[in-house]
Simulated assay, not measured.
Amino acid sequence: MAMFTKRGAEAVTSATTEKDDDNSVILPFTSGTTYKVRFKSAEDSVEYYAYGIFGKVNTFVPKVPSERNAKGFVTDNPTIWDRASELLYAEAKAAKDAGDDDTYEKIRKQAYLLKGKPKYLVAFVNLADGQYGVVDLTPKQASGVFATIQKYAKRLDKLAFELSKTGSSTNTTVSLTPILDMDEELTEQERKNFEAADALEPFDFALFETCLYVADEAEQTKNLEIAGFDIRRLGLSSEAAATAADGAVTPLPKNDGNKPEIIF
């Protein structure tokens, strides 16, 4: 669980205040998708920090995560991507101090792309099949979802919800709406699955780990090169990265829609 920085109520607070596995419980959540769900607990969520660049490097979490404080700042054991980002931020600051605002803005944007960013995994019972499912959310998306869950926290065993995503690209919106007339709005099978959820065991937080792509240091190094960063600036070499990974420099496997895809 080291890859997750917050769970349950802590994940909710963090969001609102501001592994490749065939058995993964992550569900595709593209724009236009709607799930009818039941929440077994208001605590079934975790925060994690994701790295990647849309269109270049698919989202991953480091095998050995950096240590962060309560505000999310790296305090120890920075990843290779953290080190690259910090180096660029330092250069951006130097440019700003020198009065070169154009260079400052250009380098700052590059540094932000390499920076780890918080995301949230939220678990629920999918009423379509009566099994647990998980969706991956940005802080803004999670904030609204968590607010609704907290609003109805005392009635989660009585209410079903519609979880929907709309919009496109970076302008997607996620909504969570209670279904007030379950007799009218749920199918017979969905109502049966809602009732059967009473007998389900509590969500196993270990299942969250099946939702993420984990990269070791060698793969992070390869992907940093793919992102366009000169790893020699960190005292690394392509040859060393290739040797450590027992292969040539290649991008992450193509995202099949069932793994988190972050847009920075």
Rank of each mutant, 00 (worst) to 15 (best):
A42M: 10
D230L: 12
P178N: 06
K71N: 10
D183I: 08
Q150H: 10
T103P: 00
V122P: 00
K151P: 00
D246Q: 10
F4E: 08
E225F: 03
Q131D: 08
Y51W: 13
R68G: 03
I179Y: 02
E10K: 15
T177W: 00
E190G: 05
P118V: 08
T79W: 03
S175D: 12
K63H: 05
G8S: 10
L121V: 07
D82K: 07
V25F: 10
T148M: 07
L137D: 09
A9M: 06
A92D: 01
K56I: 12
R233K: 12
V25S: 13
T148S: 06
D21S: 14
K158C: 00
G235F: 04
S164A: 15
N126R: 05
A160E: 07
L236S: 09
V174A: 09
K115Y: 14
K96E: 15
D82G: 07
I26A: 11
A227S: 10
S168F: 05
T16V: 12
G228C: 12
Y48R: 09
L180W: 08
F205W: 06
M1R: 11
E219V: 14
V64A: 10
A142P: 08
R108P: 00
E91Q: 15
K115G: 02
E239Q: 13
E67C: 05
V174S: 04
A215F: 12
L200W: 04
V12W: 02
P251A: 15
D44T: 09
F54P: 00
A142S: 14
A50Y: 01
V249H: 03
E239Y: 09
P260H: 13
S45N: 13
V12I: 14
D216M: 04
G247Y: 03
D136K: 01
A218Q: 08
V145A: 02
I263L: 13
K71A: 14
T17Y: 12
C211N: 04
L163Y: 03
D76C: 01
Y51I: 11
D216Y: 01
V61P: 02
K192L: 09
V134E: 00
A15N: 14
K56D: 13
D21P: 02
T59N: 04
E105Y: 14
L137N: 02
P28D: 01
L186P: 06
T173R: 11
A42I: 10
G52Y: 02
P62M: 07
A248F: 01
A218N: 11
T30M: 08
I226S: 11
S169Y: 14
A206S: 14
A50C: 11
Y132C: 03
L127R: 07
S31P: 07
R108M: 07
T13H: 08
I263F: 10
N223P: 04
Y51D: 14
T177V: 07
